[in-house]
């Protein structure tokens, strides 16, 4: 299963090679053009020359750690790549570097902590990656400074049509775009799997600059906070509630046109949908919509509980419904159902 394969693979921001590899294997045969750029963004294009040029983007990278130093004991010092809550890190299995050397994230055992320490969150400065070696020399034989460290989780089915795993943000987006790209739409489609989203939306701007599409759609994994102890108004999205349409986030305000496009298509096809209720955090949609003279950009996401942690949950109905919605939307665009301004419009 492609989604399982994509989520189990490791691809911390800046080190997306394994994800690129899987996607190339999966999609090269469907594409007219396959290429990468200097940042590592991966592009697949087909339908070249057709009228509307649409870019679809999902980011390949996931949050993780990077090795910054060695202790004499052979324990590794690491810093966070992307935003991870320090509190989810302790006692998790990881893999380090190109050779996927296994390790665990350890901290001083609770017995050895002073009562005052026990109440505090354990931050990254008090966490170490332990490869099981006895000295710095041994550690340096296995891993290098600057090696990326990825949290390691097997993806498994659970509950009613759910998956537990890591990196659904945004491998679920990668998965959906891969599925879409295998089909044909009457459009000039470039699917871009972007890099370095988690460290400040650093890949997508360059990608949109090169592709220079008429319109873009970004597919994300977004936080579902419909858990006990939170008010419904504060639920960013609800698991199982269908694809989440973003109205606004920290980087982006959705144009009414694209909101209408998603909503009308969902209603026409009878697909459940929800609006993302939170307006915080940024996405590639922000960068893409700000590239060149402005690119009309839509953003839809799959809800994901416990995002940015090694054990997060997606609902497969949401995934399928997002796929249906995206197909519907691309067909609407292909039929000219949304006015994509080529240059500028007269004021109405």
């Amino acid at each position: 299963m492609l989604l399982k394969r994509l989520t189990e693979a490791y691809g911390v921001s800046g080190d997306e090679g394994d994800i690129r590899h899987i996607l190339k294997e999966e999609l090269s045969s469907s594409a007219e053009e396959v290429y990468t750029d200097a940042l590592g963004n991966l592009f697949f294009r087909k339908g070249k020359g057709r009228s509307a040029k649409v870019m679809l983007a999902a980011h390949m990278d996931e949050v993780g750690l990077i090795v910054v130093g060695f202790e004499k004991s052979g324990l590794l010092r690491a810093h966070k790549v992307g935003s991870i809550d320090d509190r989810v890190l302790v006692s998790k299995p990881v893999v380090v570097g190109k050779n996927k050397v296994p390790g665990v994230i350890g901290a001083k055992a609770v017995h050895l902590q002073k009562p005052s320490e026990r109440k505090k969150a354990i931050d990254i400065d008090n966490l170490y990656i332990d490869l099981g070696v006895r000295s710095q020399d041994e550690a340096e034989k296995l891993v290098n400074l600057g090696d990326y460290v990825a949290l390691s989780t097997k993806t498994r089915e659970a509950g009613e049509n759910c998956l537990i795993g890591k990196a659904f943000d945004d491998r679920v987006g990668c998965f959906l775009l891969a599925e879409l790209f295998k089909e044909d739409f009457a459009l000039d489609v470039t699917v871009v799997f972007t890099v370095q989203e988690e460290i400040g939306l650093r890949g997508s701007g360059a990608a949109a600059y090169s592709v220079h599409p008429d319109m873009a759609i970004v597919v994300e994994g977004t936080s579902a906070s419909d858990v006990v102890g939170t008010k419904e108004a504060a639920h960013a999205t609800t698991l199982g509630g269908g694809p989440a349409i973003t109205l606004m986030d920290a980087s982006y305000i959705a144009p009414q046109k694209t909101i209408d496009l998603f909503v009308q298509t969902a209603e026409k096809l009878g697909i459940p949908y929800q609006f993302r209720r939170s307006t915080t955090s940024g996405t590639d949609a922000g960068k893409i919509s700000q590239t060149h003279s402005g690119i009309l950009t839509g953003l839809v996401s799959v809800p994901c509980r416990y995002i940015h942690s090694p054990a997060s949950i997606v609902n497969l109905d949401d995934v399928q419904n997002t796929l249906r919605l995206l197909k519907g939307v691309l067909n609407v665009i292909a039929e000219g159902g949304i006015s994509i301004e080529a240059a500028t419009e007269k004021v109405k």
Partner: peptide, 20 residues
């Protein structure tokens, strides 16, 4: 637009919502 229509040569908008 109503204020300026008679005194400029062109008026148009773009996808970000700017008015030129």
């Amino acid at each position: 637009r109503d204020e300026l229509e008679s005194c400029v040569d062109e008026i148009y908008t773009d996808s970000t919502g700017n008015l030129y």
